[in-house]
Amino acid sequence: MFEARLAQSNLMKKILDAIKDLITEANLEISSGGISLQGMDSSHVSLVALLMRSDGFSPFRCDRNLTLGVNLQAMAKLMKCASNDDILTMTAEDNSDTLNLQFESPAQDKLSEFEMKLMDIDSEHLGIPETEYDAVIRMPSSEFQRICRDLGAGIGGESVTIACTKEGVKFSVTGSVGSGSITLKQTGSVDKPAESVVINMAQPVTLIFALRYLNSFAKATPLSESVSLSMSREVPLVVEYKMNDTGYVRFYLAPKLED
């Protein structure tokens, strides 16, 4: 038996909206630690890793580990039937082929119940090596979203070069109408961590990425006020949105390498 009760349906809506365009279906892995998911996009360039720790739910019950194959687009549509502040309860029997979703209004005067069919999904679980990153940049998530949008829409760029030095982080593109760059300097004050740009750097690093993936990752912006970018030479970028202390959505993106 699996049961997980989440105080705000809104969180699940935001998570599904953040990942459903990149991966349309995935296995939700349920264990005593919580709910996790890993999936690659169809072109094998990016990967989504989700963790919702059990302590983010009240209660959370998982008698034995379960793998629930879910069509994320369908689940996102179903979640739209919940009001943002509805209490979400997910339940599944041990050998069930359905996931039950229950939305309860805060005043407890409305209860919606849905049964979602599960599917068998062949998924390759990849081992992600532990990496010491050359640079970890933390910035407001809205700023990251804005930069990705402006460089894509404004310049028509396909590839973005991200160069990180102690002074700041520079995003550059060359596109159909010309070229451009946006540089963010490290902010002095750390009074407001969510509004700061903080660079932790062992050595300068420059990498090239497909901009459209970064724009897709930025759909997770509502999940967190800040985002971190972890970069090392010739390894995938990690873009992480933390959900308070209860979990994260991480996106991994393979770089473009010189021929």
């Binding site: 995938p236 393979a254 473009k256």
Partner: peptide, 13 residues
């Protein structure tokens, strides 16, 4: 020019 790498070349199955 630059070429898009696959994640599979970094992460093991």
């Amino acid at each position: 020019g630059s070429k898009q790498a696959s994640l599979m070349s970094f992460f093991k199955k």
